[in-house]
Computed example of a mutant assay.
Amino acid sequence: MAAEEKSIGRKLLSFFITEETATPANTSSLMPPPIPKVEKTVEPAIIPQGIEKGVVDKKFIDHFVQLLENSNLKGPDYFEYMQALKGLTGLGLSEEKQFQAAWASFKVMGGITDVAVLTDTAKQYIGILDTDRQGFLKDVENAVSQKVGGLKNDLKKTEEENENIAKQIIDLQRKIDENKIKINKLTDDISEQSGKITINKSNYETTYHTFVEQIKGDIAKIVAYLK
């Protein structure tokens, strides 16, 4: 394959996905000159049920293109047939005629007469993609186990910490309520004891002054009566 030619994977890719920068493929010298392009309806890809809705991602496009290029089987096969089919795009032929014309050109080019060569090699490429998919899904599983699993462990640990903190808060609140009751009782006890002490002090002072005045009165009488 010449360096300036478009890669075989890109040629195949362009049959399924329209690239904005795609370069028109060269048509066979046996084909008539191109006529105005007739748009054809492309059947959407069938996505198995149960798979979350996604989009065609460029990084995976590039990955599959490279994978198919590296896995290109020897000799004319499905890959080369799809190149020939791509060369008929825009000639105004029906899809059936395009496939038939490409097959006629392919047989001349590769000396192949059995259509099974196309279907068998196409299935081999599907097998290659399936093998790659299994590896990818295994990597996803490992990533989920390592990264998501670690995050789930952190989540569980954090939830348990919150549960413990919540229990501590409940215990602290219970202690606060108990202390409030104790504070109220102590306040009442302080008031009661303060009142008793104040009364005792007043009684003491009154009794003291009564005795002092009594004695002073006695002193006055002694001085007055006993001269």
Score class of each variant (00 low, 15 high):
residue 175 K to A: 10
residue 203 N to T: 10
residue 129 L to P: 02
residue 159 E to S: 13
residue 67 L to T: 13
residue 28 S to T: 07
residue 37 K to I: 04
residue 106 F to T: 03
residue 50 G to S: 07
residue 42 V to E: 10
residue 152 K to C: 01
residue 145 S to W: 06
residue 219 I to T: 05
residue 114 D to Y: 03
residue 163 E to N: 13
residue 121 T to A: 13
residue 216 K to W: 00
residue 88 L to Q: 06
residue 181 I to C: 03
residue 119 T to S: 14
residue 15 F to C: 13
residue 218 D to G: 11
residue 217 G to L: 00
residue 83 Q to C: 15
residue 85 L to A: 15
residue 91 L to T: 07
residue 126 I to V: 14
residue 213 E to I: 05
residue 127 G to T: 10
residue 34 P to A: 03
residue 143 A to S: 10
residue 164 N to P: 09
residue 20 E to D: 09
residue 39 E to P: 13
residue 30 L to G: 02
residue 193 Q to P: 02
residue 189 D to Q: 12
residue 24 P to Y: 07
residue 175 K to F: 02
residue 43 E to Y: 06
residue 138 K to T: 14
residue 219 I to W: 02
residue 217 G to P: 03
residue 140 V to Q: 12
residue 47 I to Y: 06
residue 20 E to W: 08
residue 187 T to P: 01
residue 24 P to N: 08
residue 191 S to I: 11
residue 48 P to N: 06
residue 124 Q to S: 13
residue 98 Q to W: 05
residue 97 K to T: 14
residue 134 Q to P: 00
residue 100 Q to G: 01
residue 165 I to P: 00
residue 191 S to K: 10
residue 219 I to E: 12
residue 154 D to S: 12
residue 189 D to I: 06
residue 214 Q to M: 11
residue 53 K to T: 11
residue 227 K to H: 14
residue 56 V to P: 08
residue 215 I to W: 06
residue 24 P to M: 04
residue 178 E to H: 02
residue 39 E to S: 13
residue 162 N to I: 12
residue 92 G to K: 01
residue 89 T to H: 03
residue 77 D to I: 07
residue 142 N to A: 12
residue 63 H to A: 15
residue 138 K to R: 12
residue 219 I to P: 05
residue 202 S to G: 05
residue 43 E to H: 10
residue 222 I to H: 10
residue 203 N to A: 11
residue 55 V to H: 08
residue 27 T to N: 03
residue 227 K to Q: 15
residue 16 F to I: 00
residue 105 S to Y: 02
residue 66 Q to D: 15
residue 82 M to N: 10
residue 101 A to F: 03
residue 178 E to R: 04
residue 65 V to M: 06
residue 160 E to I: 07
residue 181 I to H: 02
residue 122 A to H: 00
residue 141 E to K: 11
residue 153 N to G: 07
residue 108 V to C: 10
residue 69 E to C: 08
residue 175 K to E: 06
residue 200 N to H: 02
residue 190 I to K: 13
residue 209 H to Q: 09
residue 197 I to Y: 11
residue 72 N to M: 07
residue 27 T to H: 06
residue 17 I to Q: 06
residue 55 V to E: 14
residue 217 G to K: 01
residue 186 L to F: 04
residue 3 A to Q: 13
residue 69 E to S: 08
residue 133 R to D: 13
residue 201 K to F: 00
residue 203 N to W: 00
residue 182 K to M: 11
residue 56 V to K: 12
residue 110 G to T: 03
residue 121 T to F: 05
residue 159 E to P: 05
residue 126 I to F: 05
residue 72 N to A: 11
residue 153 N to K: 13
residue 84 A to G: 04
residue 186 L to E: 07
